[in-house]
């Protein structure tokens, strides 16, 4: 069987045939046509004839969209079962489920388009927290915090916890970088100080940088007292950095 079927202005019978084959083969079905929608279940609703896009996913989920608006006008969750037949010059598609008992009946009186698609998607969706966004942008372009910084390791486990980013600055000094998505307070400074202290005992000079959009006054005072540093960075700017598709190159890319 081919992996895609696309029919323009199909007859009701053609559409019925493609629909039955598609559902049994667990295809994604997209049906566009003039239809009315009746819902029976926890309540009852009717939507008179109009052009709509009906999508049936490979797991039985149903979504019906009108030509406008973000939200679908009707839907049914995954696991719904289907029946389709031609009656009185219309193609009727019914989606139903048992618990709770619900049924949506879509009555098509004409069809504009039908697609039956075999689609593959195994990617995992990742929604990043604000601090993950800051770290990701920093790793992509460390100069947004300071020119010459180089990331050595992330999520470095030390006795006092987990360091966001362990870096080396342009002078070769070790720098601990901690990110906070909102105004940083004294506890953030103390956390950073603990990391820096732990690394300082190993001999060399260690810098501590707290990267955040802003600082409380107490945090600012404490940073000065503990010889640590504050670098201003907003989450919004980080998102822009991640959005840009460009890349900084190196001079060595161009030498003979």
């Amino acid at each position: 069987m081919s992996s895609k079927i696309a029919l323009e202005n199909p007859s009701l019978e053609e559409a019925l045939e493609a629909f039955k084959l598609g559902v049994s083969a667990r295809r994604i079905l997209i049906i566009v046509g003039e239809c009315r929608i009746d819902y029976f279940g926890r309540g009852h609703s009717e939507l008179d004839y109009g052009d709509r896009v009906v999508t049936i996913k490979n797991d039985g989920a149903l979504i019906i969209h009108r030509p406008f608006s973000l939200e679908p006008v009707n839907w049914q969750p995954s696991g719904s079962m289907y029946r389709a037949y031609v009656k009185n010059g219309s193609l009727i598609v019914e989606a139903y489920r048992r618990r709770p008992e619900e049924k949506i009946r879509v009555t098509f009186r004409s069809l504009l388009f039908l697609a039956s698609l075999n689609l593959r998607d195994y990617a995992s969706f990742k929604l990043y927290t604000s601090e993950e966004i800051m770290k990701k942008a920093f790793i992509k372009r460390p100069e947004i915090v300071e020119k010459g910084l180089r990331v050595v390791s992330e999520e470095k486990k030390v006795r006092s916890g987990l360091i966001d980013c362990l870096c080396v600055d342009s002078n070769g000094k070790i720098a601990v970088v901690e990110f906070k998505k909102s105004r940083a307070g004294v506890d953030a400074v103390e956390q950073l100080s603990n990391y820096v202290q732990e690394l300082r005992t190993r001999g060399s000079e260690v810098r501590g940088m707290l990267v955040a959009p802003s600082l409380t006054r107490e945090a600012g005072d404490k940073i000065k007292a503990l010889n640590l540093e504050f670098k201003r960075l907003s989450v919004k700017k980080c998102i822009k950095v991640l959005e840009s598709t460009g890349e900084t190159t190196k001079i060595s890319d161009f030498t003979s």
Binding site: G148, T249, K250, I251
Partner: peptide, 9 residues
């Protein structure tokens, strides 16, 4: 000389 990140010379 090149800067430490090798972006400029």
């Amino acid at each position: 000389a090149m800067d430490p990140s090798h972006v400029a010379m």
